[in-house]
Simulated assay, not measured.
Amino acid sequence: MNHCMLEVLVKKAPTVRFTQDNKTPLAEIEVEFDSLRADDPPYAIKVVGWGKLAEELQNTVQVNSKLVIEGRLRMNTIPRKDGTKEKQAEFTLSRIHPFSSKTAISSIPSQNQSNLEKDSANSSNNEGLKWDSSPLVPDTDDIPF
């Protein structure tokens, strides 16, 4: 099954167009997300939303908004002017979640919410803590077996 969730930053405002046959709205935005390695630049990807999601993109999403998006990832082959072909990733949207820390806390049951708030208050005092984003598999050419 192909289902992805990405935390993204909107780089270009939504553009909306309609299909010819049944006038279904189609919106496209360009977003970027962080790479796994600190020295790599962020990745940019085109996000496509159909129907009500296209309308939601048009009405609520702005440049520099942070979102969590859900959907399907696919690769398109696009011909270049020089005759070669280029592969580009495209994300077909199924859900949009505005990104905020309050949203994340409010979705947790109330009995655990006070513990989470205490933990987050304690972790704000620990300035040395960082997320380890190193790859799960070492980046070597050696075969491990």
Rank of each mutant, 00 (worst) to 15 (best):
M1R: 13
H3I: 13
M5I: 10
V8P: 01
L9A: 06
L9F: 05
K12I: 05
T15Y: 05
D21E: 15
T24W: 01
L26P: 08
E28V: 15
E28A: 14
S35K: 04
L36W: 11
P41W: 01
A44T: 09
W50G: 03
L53W: 00
L53F: 00
E56Q: 14
L57V: 07
L57Y: 01
N59R: 13
V63R: 13
V68M: 02
M75L: 13
R80Y: 04
R80T: 15
K81I: 10
K81G: 11
D82L: 06
E90A: 07
E90I: 09
F91D: 00
T92C: 04
L93I: 09
H97Y: 14
H97G: 04
P98R: 11
F99V: 02
S100N: 03
S101G: 09
K102T: 13
I105D: 03
I105S: 02
I105P: 01
S106R: 14
S106Y: 06
Q111T: 08
S114F: 09
S114A: 12
S114T: 11
K118Y: 10
D119C: 08
S123Y: 06
L129M: 11
S134T: 15
P135I: 00
P135F: 01
L136G: 07
L136K: 15
V137A: 15
D141Y: 14
P144H: 04
